[in-house]
Design a protein around this nucleic acid. Structure first.
Lengths: 149, 149
DNA sequence: TCTTGACCCTATAGCGACTATAGGCCCTAT
DNA sequence: ATAGGGCCTATAGTCGCTATAGGGTCAAGA
């Protein structure tokens, strides 16, 4: 049974535009077409898209997934590279959790700085202007990026 | 004492290009210029840039910071909005931590799936193809985005 | 005096992973 | 016959920077 793009989208929880985007990026092969030029997908495509989505859910970049797909399509003797990839991801995730925990304590101390009115100025704004003496902040000033929380 | 852009950058741990970008985005006012057209910054600018950087380190978007700056420039009687903003951020951060913890357990179970060789196929790849029965994954399939780990 | 290098300027394009918009064809139901 | 949904392509926009190109300014050293 062949699926149209909308059906594949529904099955995989992936948006239609995203599927087309993956095709453009070379992650999905160009599928069959109907005589009306509609894309038609088979079982292999479903599995491949699921693979891509699982990888994305595990925080892998499209570039990494591309390489994983090559390994998957042409198996070699060892999977050292794959092991390293997973290990690296685990470490990155751990670092992100630490950063977020720290950010959370900051935000909470900020939250307690407001007494509910602006007499004498809002404590939150004041703290944001003055900043706080914090190793974390100093460190983050030197390596910006990934600051979107 | 007036500062050139590079000096301001050094003081705040912000890159020169980023300062110019904030100006273009209307977060920083257009500063004085020397007769050679170099930007010159005063104390007010330093404080304002520090404010912006602190907010960014707390994960606020430039749009939110823009609004905060308006509040800061034109104080009103209440800071409900600011309180809600911080509260919302704390909740978002908590959600991200939960997501990442879950992701970490997934990655770890994945890591243990590889026995070091490819005889019969790599367990990691197999798991990625098949996915795992997991509420988390199902949920994420329905609300994508924020998947960059 | 010349040149080197660090700093400054503007304008524009690129990053990643989508998302949105415009403009148009196809198909079914009312 | 027309309205609504799904499909197509191509292009631009999102966010918060970052990089590149192409040029002017300025102080120190050979």
């Amino acid at each position: 049974m062949k699926l149209k793009i909308g059906e594949l989208a529904k099955m995989t929880g992936c948006q239609v535009v995203t599927i087309r985007y993956y095709e453009k990026e070379g992650l999905l092969e160009r599928p069959e077409r109907t005589e009306r030029n509609y894309r038609l997908y088979g079982d292999g495509d479903i599995a491949r898209l699921r693979f891509i989505r699982h990888c994305r859910q595990h925080g892998m970049s499209l570039a990494e997934i591309r390489t994983l797909l090559v390994y998957s399509d042409h198996p070699t003797g060892s999977c050292d590279w794959i092991n390293r990839l997973i290990r690296t991801h685990i470490e990155a995730v751990e670092q992100q959790i630490r950063d977020l925990e720290h950010l959370k304590t900051h935000l909470e101390s900020l939250y307690h700085k407001c007494d509910g009115n602006r007499e004498g100025g809002c404590g939150i704004l004041k703290s944001l202007i003055d900043g706080e003496n914090c190793q974390y902040c100093q460190a983050r000033q030197r390596r910006p990026g990934q600051e979107r929380a």
